[in-house]
């Protein structure tokens, strides 16, 4: 029996879709059977982040409206053999095209066949959010180290607790070690202290994410990128492994250190 994990945040643009794509990728690399379920009806993006946009025939609403069978709508990601599938959101409908009950039935059906169902939740706290969390066993709340994102994360955590969600964990995305060091960005402890929630991982700001999204190849596939490493660590923690947080800054060579000291390149 699989587990349904909703990736949510409240605020838009903090990295829900990037997280869903990379977590799914990393779990599939570890031989887990994974479905990525895009619940952002009307504003789907998980397909382009995964590079699967040209393979969509049916979508989530086609499945719940019984236009097609679930199996027909699942897009197999060929990079991962039989381990990673995407169920895309409908693009020409809105959030009311699906009900929480339908989402629950759908995730139940998927749980029978897959180890992990990752639900990419839309921003906001309205029906799209209600739908996305309705079948979930647990939640990962994504935030960035900014006042607005942390505030929204607090609201979302409150709503998840009120809905009796199982485990709720926090993912801090786009942290910038150099800004943290000089006291211009909240650090991990500050945020955990404010939100009083368990941490599942921290992902540093990384140019590789933009390149990866340009190409439709998640950074979790890139063994040299720091964000990819962070997401692979998070995937292991999701499956219950104890993995220490990686140091925020990569060890720098002498030349790089001198450059930074002189104020070049940051």
């Amino acid at each position: 029996m699989g587990e349904v994990i909703v990736i949510t945040s409240g605020k838009g643009g903090v990295g829900k879709t990037t997280t869903a794509a990379n977590l799914g990728t990393a779990l599939a690399l570890n031989e887990h059977r994974v479905v990525l379920l895009d619940a952002d009806i009307g504003l789907r993006n998980l397909d382009v982040v995964m590079g699967l946009e040209n393979r969509i025939v049916y979508d989530l609403v086609d499945v719940t409206a019984k236009v097609c069978r679930l199996k027909q709508a699942l897009i197999r990601d060929k990079r991962f053999n039989e381990h990673l599938f995407l169920l895309p959101a409908a693009q020409t409908r809105d959030k009311t095209a699906v009900t929480p009950e339908e989402m629950k039935d759908l995730t139940e059906e998927l749980k029978a066949e897959f180890d992990f169902i990752l639900v990419d939740c839309p921003a906001g706290i309205e029906q799209g959010f209600r739908n996305a969390i309705s079948g979930a066993d647990r939640a990962i709340v994504v935030t960035t180290p900014e006042v607005s994102a942390v505030r929204d994360a607090d609201r979302i955590i409150g709503l998840l607790e009120a809905s009796e969600m199982g485990e709720v964990q926090l993912l801090i995305n786009r942290i910038r070690p150099r800004m943290v060091k000089r006291g211009d960005m909240m650090d991990i402890d500050d945020i955990i202290d404010i939100l009083a929630v368990d941490l599942v991982g921290v992902v540093p700001e990384d140019d590789c994410i933009v390149v990866a999204t340009n190409r439709g190849e998640p950074t979790a596939l890139d063994s040299t990128s720091r964000s990819g490493q962070a997401f692979r660590n998070i995937a292991r923690r999701v499956t219950g492994e104890q993995v220490p947080l990686m140091p925020l800054e990569a060890e720098e060579g002498l030349i790089a250190r001198v450059r930074h000291l002189l104020g070049f390149g940051s």
Binding site: R155, G183, D184, I194
Partner: peptide
Amino acid sequence: APSKEIAKERLRLVLVHDR
């Protein structure tokens, strides 16, 4: 003061009101 201290204090207040 480092701006993160300002952020923390503002967040603390805003969350008291939100909650």
